[in-house]
Nucleic acid binder design. Sequence first.
DNA 1: CCAAATATGTCGTAATACGACCTATCGGAG
DNA 2: CTCCGATAGGTCGTATTACGACATATTTGG
Lengths: 110, 110
Amino acid sequence: MFNRELKKGSIQLLILALLENRERHGYELGKLIEARSGGRLVFRLHSLYPTLCRMEEMGLLKSRWVEKPGTRRRRFYRLTAGGRRALERKRQRWTQYMQAVNQIVGLDDA
Amino acid sequence: MFNRELKKGSIQLLILALLENRERHGYELGKLIEARSGGRLVFRLHSLYPTLCRMEEMGLLKSRWVEKPGTRRRRFYRLTAGGRRALERKRQRWTQYMQAVNQIVGLDDA
DNA sequence: CCAAATATGTCGTAATACGACCTATCGGAG
DNA sequence: CTCCGATAGGTCGTATTACGACATATTTGG
């Protein structure tokens, strides 16, 4: 629904926020973003996986494989200490960015 | 100040909004964005010029050279009818996008 | 006279979301 | 039983786009 370029830069914030309280796997993250935005914000799964990989390399996430009989294997991600700090930083940046754009575009409140 | 990726996708909205009521030239647009965001949002001029060019090709803007004695030549841009429609569309998209992200990230209001 | 601000532009790079494509398992409908 | 959709993970190449480096020219102020 949204412009591809508009979505750039927010995906990491979204992932970090969804992992704040519990560990989740990639597919779940994609579905959650779609559900919580009322279907308006959709990230393709094949966009999420490379991003998760990158974020693990950056030290923001830690993953582990979980294999249970009766279910397919899943890779669960959880926040590291660095990821938690990044979440706070990105939340602030996002808020300030929103305010800056709104000030110029002439939207007082969303 | 902001992440490069975060800024992608909003520059066209900003330009269209600033041109809503009067024509302006490129340098002025850059300075205005910086000033109105309190210096927080800065787009380099050499990012603006190609964007303005693209937007003119897309039919959103119309430009004209203005040469006055005593000043350098400037290229002024103004909105076309299509640009005006694009502004409304992008304003709505931006608002909805903001709401979707905030819903997931857990920010109630900016 | 020289520096800074004004004013516009080109070229190559990096980041990243997506489309196309691939693999595999599970539950339910036919 | 078979096929399909949902679940679950992944690779590779492409398009978009903001930026850094670089180039150019004029005007104003110290």
